[in-house]
Nucleic acid binder design. Sequence first.
DNA 1: GTGAAAGCGCTAACAG
DNA 2: CTGTTAGCGCTTTCAC
Lengths: 334, 334
Amino acid sequence: MATIEDVAKLAGLSRTTVSRVINNHPYVSEAKKQLVLDAMKQLGYVPNSSARSLRNQKTEMIAVIIPRVMNPFFGQLVESLEIAASEYHYQVIVCQTLYSAKKELDYLNLLKTKQVDGVILTTLLNDWRQIEPFLDYGPIVLCNEFEERANIPTVHMNQEYGGYVATTHLIEDGHSRIAYCCGNMKSNVTKAREKGFRKAHTERGLQIDEDLVFRNVFTFEDGKKILKKLMTMESRPTAIFTGSDEVAAGVISEAKKMGIMVPEELAVVGFDNQDITELMDPMITTIHQPVKEMAHKAMNVMMDKIKHKNYKKKEVYQLPLSLVVRESTEKSAQ
Amino acid sequence: MATIEDVAKLAGLSRTTVSRVINNHPYVSEAKKQLVLDAMKQLGYVPNSSARSLRNQKTEMIAVIIPRVMNPFFGQLVESLEIAASEYHYQVIVCQTLYSAKKELDYLNLLKTKQVDGVILTTLLNDWRQIEPFLDYGPIVLCNEFEERANIPTVHMNQEYGGYVATTHLIEDGHSRIAYCCGNMKSNVTKAREKGFRKAHTERGLQIDEDLVFRNVFTFEDGKKILKKLMTMESRPTAIFTGSDEVAAGVISEAKKMGIMVPEELAVVGFDNQDITELMDPMITTIHQPVKEMAHKAMNVMMDKIKHKNYKKKEVYQLPLSLVVRESTEKSAQ
DNA sequence: GTGAAAGCGCTAACAG
DNA sequence: CTGTTAGCGCTTTCAC
């Protein structure tokens, strides 16, 4: 492979001059510049990234840590983050933890080994004390997940409001026995959402039946299971707030099979506003999360931190969530 | 950040010895090895990847070029490829072309700049002549897409059989007017699938009405549009074979809205066997693609090529496809 | 078993 | 404007 040296020789110039041309530095005469350009073209020369990374102490790569790509929410997040990164000529490395705390730590090592210029964490499997030491090696930005103790840039959604507005919508529709599904209870996203759920009840003087609260519900299979369980209960809920559209779709799909009318017998609220909400019959009422905006903001912040290196400071950006009412809760619409 | 030099000094040894310990080379006495290990721990030393990459001429990164992550088929492919790569301690860089041929070329440049050890192409937007020159810079493996002229390792599915078996299933169910949707006609995946579709017709002495063949159909929105168009036709088809489960879901969703019974009035076959096939009502008959197996095979082949450098040779692995019959084509099941 | 030294390909002082 | 030179951090001959 041709190196800068080869180009220099062919052009009859020094490596420095070639380097200057490559990096668009000033103070190169047009004539020599052309000489270099010609030599580069003739040799099919392209600068070696490893050498550049070593010399410049930056790789122009960002690690994005997610549970898995096939989770639609995180898939969308990765897609948007990659698009945002490419605008800065940065590459994104996908790091799937598959819900393993150890893998999360392994991937954070990319920061230590300087394989990436920064890490975007979208989820937090380890305790913050485990993560914090990695900050000595480069910027970490929290995107989606958040953590009180973490003094780093954070871009996330107002999850409490999400839980609140969805629940309020159900209550105002006349529901008072509302089932609740959520994911990993260690997540602050989950906690905040539940806080909103509870707040909505309290405000209207309603009690929550803890038997209707389900944890660790993630997939559409889980949704199906929950629906079945609900149907065995003596005193059934009239509505269910699920943590994701997949779960909601699973609930609705199973409800149909069991001959339960949605929303007449069971109103369903999803979360994320994925495509599937418009595909299901009834279409799913959900909470829209501005994922693209969050991704862009997170990447912008990351680029700023890489540039200015002042990344050990709390800096929180919160994006709004909004309720999208569709058929799965609208009795009148049926 | 601590370097190998720092470790050597602290251990009172040479860089060479430290390097030997890092790389588990033999001929290091246990005593000195322990000295090095201690020094490394004390300094929190981790080898710098850029330096290693430069020296070893490999980055342990693979670029995976896909249209976009949110396309469920490619999302699944990326997920599986990343899992396979991580087993080799390789990282995957996601490269989304967003259907732009230029971006495809841009991402192939990662090979030239030695930012990655190899590229996995899952789609082909440029003519093969545009791609071929990149082979001088490192291995390219085709995974999913295939190309006659490409003398490189290829792992793909038997798409012709997929088209054939789906169509035959419909014909045997008594359908003779079958609509057909496909994606990008430049893709050999698409072409092979259509070949199978046509072959099934020919074999049974059936004609294809070219008005029922739709190109560039990708999303569930597209599926909805097609359904609407179909319904304006004088002589409607009684079945439709779509290129993906999303499109099939769109068709079914819209059919319901228009009061058309699936499968009684319109049988629908999807492709990919995504989760959504089991979520829709009726559940979607589809073609299962062994994506995980394909991804693993492709990554194994890639690792082999990186190791042995003999990657400019045709080497084709074809995986089987299979029909999964569900409710969207089964009249009797209703 | 261990170390000295060269060099992977590049950029940035510094000198002119 | 251009070139000389010294590394970035690591691995690997080669010599002892």
